[in-house]
Design a protein around this nucleic acid. Structure first.
Lengths: 352, 352
DNA sequence: CTGAAAGCGCTTACAG
DNA sequence: CTGAAAGCGCTTACAG
């Protein structure tokens, strides 16, 4: 910048004003400065700006588990939303661990992020950390900023299956301690009136005890009359689907299978998977917007603007706007349908 | 920092030296300063440090497509490797587009990254951009820094199938312009000696013409004698697997199916998918290490250290160390095996 | 419309 | 072992 200034014989203040378009510089000078800047390949120093303004224009994204198959959707949506708002995204993986999550948050803060989007490890409360935070979680979790309406999503799939005539369900969860999964299952159950039978299994313990690749014992369930299997994730639905198919059970003619999240493989398998889609772009926009609002706001805030928190008692800065609930969309695809072969023997003698 | 200094009646230089452990401060003073820093909840200003040192300790990660199912593995590995080396990761999605990729890179540079890991859009050459770059691609691409040996991976699966007695293959690619996919397919073919029949299909055009959810016409292939189908990604292998299963074809008894990348669902479907796994952690370590080496190096570099590139002619800074090839590991699982029912009619009359 | 000056928080020679 | 001083690159009142 000083190079541009001296090359043109103007002050760096003028260069700054010209380049930032504050409008206090004559049009022709602006033009000249722009040209020179291009010519010199000038790239403003984010460090200089950050130091002066106290804002880095970078946001941190803390994820419970980057290897989660939903992560691509999340990261992509957050990156796009942040980018539109003029922010960059610094990622941190809390690897499902609460202490790692805390460390990740500290590291991000040390790197000078202006705010944080946290997708918390189940049931984590984030205390005051002296910087704006948007939590993305379930509506049933207090203190969150925005989330999909997982309960409604569960209700939608279940109602769809009930309307198709199904009366005997198997609900498949993974982690019984997950708020999201409990909401989804709760929503499903809410769509069942009397006359509907259902049972719920949670995979986590099952798999830990019997090994990752164990059979889920679905054949027995089907023999006992289950005609619809609803999972809390497409990943589990896929597991169910392929296990049924391997056993020669027809989906959806004999059994309907549904999932959640519209993962990348869901439209691509045969039969394609009926699932519930969340509008991540919207969730991300809301989260980022809440964060940005808070950040802008604290700029004009007159008090306590010393970059350090005062004696460990940081001002409450969690985003306080009313939490937003984003509706979920049912995607009806081939894996769910009316029962076509209800009364024929299910297996031709041999089991798996 | 100045707060700590004045609270203790020492200079900020001493605080700096004490906190950074440079060892020019007496042990007791260091102790006192540390304590005071904790007490005040001191968080060093990354902006101040960056401005002074000229390093942000942040690396940019440019991905062709965040929604790629392999992305979680990549991002997780890069984040971990960077974190271990003391760097943060700023992400940017080039959305498969070359211009977006260029913009993404500029944005990252404007944010002051010290270096870039680029997983290029197929066939992109990144020119001199005035900052260290590590490219992660195929060994067959010139100028890349590190990559998995996709060719070797292809050879490994194919050899595995040949050893199992298969003699008639269908190879499934997606994008015929992808270097990675061509390497994988090339490797497969290299394992076929005379006596092996094979055909290759590329899904991209097929799907564009006939719609995303079209049948791949696998039944005809199998009827014509194909007993092994090898895809360049688990995603396509999954598509193949479920299409076969829906048609009543047994995997692996009648047809073996293999994929690539060991995606999250691969061990979980029935039958679990034989695939080729790449050691992302190692790839990430190598890429980050190359980058860090280059960054550290350019620190001591005496010449041209003016943060701006001189008249558009930036010094060549692409990481030049010999490109590393990381070996790929074959994961033999249930979806591949010897042919058990070679001569029985494949379909019981009805097709799909 | 333009410029001189101060200062954001840090680190690094340089003195003492 | 400790301190005074300079300066990284920017922006923002404040004068003119």
């Amino acid at each position: 910048m000083s190079k541009i200034a001296s090359a043109l014989g103007v002050s760096s203040a003028t260069v700054s004003n010209a380049l930032s378009g504050k409008g206090r510089v004559s049009a022709e000078l602006v033009e000249k400065i722009r040209k020179k800047a291009d010519e010199l390949g000038y790239v403003p120093s984010s460090a200089g700006r950050a130091l002066r303004t106290g804002r880095s224009n970078v946001l941190g994204l803390v994820l419970p588990d980057i290897s989660n198959p939903l992560f691509p959707q999340i990261a992509q949506a957050m990156e796009a939303a942040a980018s539109n708002a003029g922010y960059g995204i610094l990622i941190a993986d809390s690897r499902g661990d609460v202490t790692t999550q805390t460390q990740a948050i500290s590291r991000l803060i040390e790197r000078g992020v202006d705010g944080l989007v946290v997708i918390p490890r189940r049931g984590t409360r984030i205390g005051d950390i002296g910087c704006p935070v948007a939590m993305v979680d379930t509506p049933s979790t207090p203190g969150n900023t925005v989330s999909a309406d997982h309960w409604e999503g569960g209700a939608k799939v279940a109602r769809h299956l009930v309307d198709l005539g199904h009366k005997n369900f198997l609900l498949v969860g993974y982690d019984p301690a997950s708020n999201v999964q409990n909401d989804r299952i709760g929503g499903m159950k809410s769509a069942f009136d009397r006359g509907i039978k259902y049972d719920t299994i949670w995979l986590e313990t099952l798999l830990r005890e019997r090994g990752e690749q164990t059979s889920l014992g679905l054949i027995d369930r089907v023999r006992d009359g289950v005609t619809a299997i609803s999972a809390v994730s497409d990943l589990h639905a896929l597991r169910v689907l392929t296990e049924l198919q391997t056993a020669g059970i027809k989906v959806p003619q004999q059994v309907s299978v549904t999932g959640f999240d519209d993962l990348i493989f869901s439209p691509v398998v045969t039969p394609s998977l009926t699932t519930v889609h969340m509008d991540m772009a919207r969730i991300a926009e809301l989260a980022i917007a809440a964060l940005v609002r808070e950040i802008e706001h604290s700029k004009s805030e007159p008090n306590a603007n010393t970059s350090q928190k005062q004696n460990g008692k940081a001002a409450k800065q969690t985003v306080t706007a009313e939490p937003s609930k984003v509706s979920m969309e049912l995607m009806v695809r081939a894996s769910s349908g009316p029962i076509i072969l209800p009364d024929t023997p299910i297996l031709n003698g041999k089991t798996l």
